[in-house]
Design a protein around this nucleic acid. Structure first.
Length: 364
DNA sequence: GACTAGTGTCGAC
DNA sequence: TTACGGTCGACACTAGTC
């Protein structure tokens, strides 16, 4: 038995590619898939842009108005609202194909998954490569969708590898080539290292993964905390022992929205939160869950965050109890409120199975 | 010291 | 340089309790 063989598969510019599949005329144009907020106009952000749009610096997370100004000269640029149901449909079908070709399948999100294929290919890297090509072809033929695949001995490296050649890429990092592959990459390529961490490290004059190997685990722990420090120490050395495993159920559900206008008015904010309570409650009901922890999330006009949460005595699935607690949390949060509120959210966590409870009550 | 609760930050997509 | 979504998970830090 050799090392594990792990795939990371990522659908290219997923939402925008879905739109291209539905309407092939879009392929030559810059396409931006947008999450418009309730505020009207161009309030909102870019979810995904195709490569024609990325050429002009448009990428996910960008405010829509910013994207529009960057594409000002591109008269054929297209801005479409997200259509999650349609994307989910394509995603589900592609996931089924991947699942059927793996020993262990781990769903990560609508557009990515890990596959452990070690046994299926008998720990043979050539067979693994053939399997990956087979998956790419089948997804392309059945759904007209392209994806990028990274293959390596673990999830961490496979994830980095799937991003290495995009779109429609296939990158294999053999066990003996791990360091050669990682060393020249920017620190930012390590999943989990985002803006803040990169900035901190760049101030310390570290730029590539090879550079970072100079730091011992104690220095990293001191700078980033025990968990993150140790994670980074291992990651730059290509070490990741986390298994590919079936996805665990969610541990929280939340809904967030941008209000029609910024406000400090208790009743106005509460009416928005109340709508969110109903939506969250519906989700919880569909999933047959109860919750024990309730939280609200306020985003102020300067985009800073304020959260309040509480744990209640007994798990519940009651909408009334949810709304009552949210109201109280809002009251506490608005004491001494200076800035107007822009966005509001409701979250429930500490979930437990409702069926256990009902089967008990049925029993008596 | 171990544990829980609550708040805030970071990061991924 | 301004502009600014929605969901989820991990974890650091702090305060309080036992």
């Amino acid at each position: 038995m050799g090392t594990r063989i792990v795939f990371h598969i990522d659908f290219d510019y997923f939402y925008a590619q879905c739109e291209e599949i539905r309407n092939p005329d879009l392929k030559d144009k810059p396409v931006c898939v947008c999450v418009f907020s309730d505020r009207g106009g161009d309030s909102g952000a870019i979810a995904t842009a195709n490569y024609n749009a990325r050429k002009f610096g448009v990428k996910s997370g960008l405010p829509i108005s910013f994207a529009k100004s960057r594409l000002d000269d591109q008269k054929d640029a297209v801005f479409l609202p997200v259509d999650f149901d349609y994307y989910m449909d394509i995603s589900d079908k592609a996931m089924e194909i991947m699942k059927s070709k793996s020993d262990i399948f781990e769903y990560v999100g609508k557009d990515e998954a890990y596959l452990d294929v070690s046994k299926r290919v008998n720990f043979d890297w050539n067979k693994a490569k053939e399997l990956a090509q087979e998956i790419k072809i089948e997804i392309k033929e059945k759904l007209n969708l392209t994806c990028s695949i990274g293959i390596s001995p673990n999830k961490l490296i496979s994830k980095i590898a799937s991003d290495f050649q995009k779109p429609d890429g296939l990158t294999i990092v053999y066990p003996e080539k791990v360091n050669e592959f990682l060393d020249p990459l920017k620190i930012r390529e390590i999943p989990g290292i985002g803006n803040k961490t990169e900035e901190k490290l760049s101030e310390m004059n570290f730029s590539t993964i090879k550079d970072l190997k100079e730091l011992d685990v104690f220095a990293l722990n001191k700078e980033f905390g025990r968990k993150s420090g140790t994670y980074i120490y291992n990651a730059v050395r290509g070490i990741d022992n986390s298994p590919v495993k079936t996805r665990e159920p969610n541990t929280q559900f939340s809904k967030i929205m941008t209000m029609k206008m910024d406000s400090t008015d208790f009743d106005f904010i509460l009416s928005n939160l109340s709508e969110l309570c109903k939506e969250v409650h519906q989700v919880v009901l569909n999933k047959n869950q109860m919750f024990k922890s309730i939280g609200i999330h306020l985003i102020q006009s300067d985009l800073s965050n304020k959260t309040k949460s509480k744990t209640i005595k007994n798990p519940t699935s009651s909408l009334e109890e949810l709304e009552k607690n949210v109201e109280q949390l809002l009251r506490e949060a608005l004491e001494d409120q200076k800035l107007p509120i822009r966005r509001v959210g409701v979250k429930v966590s500490d979930l437990s199975d409702l069926r256990e409870q009902s089967s008990l009550t049925n029993y008596f």
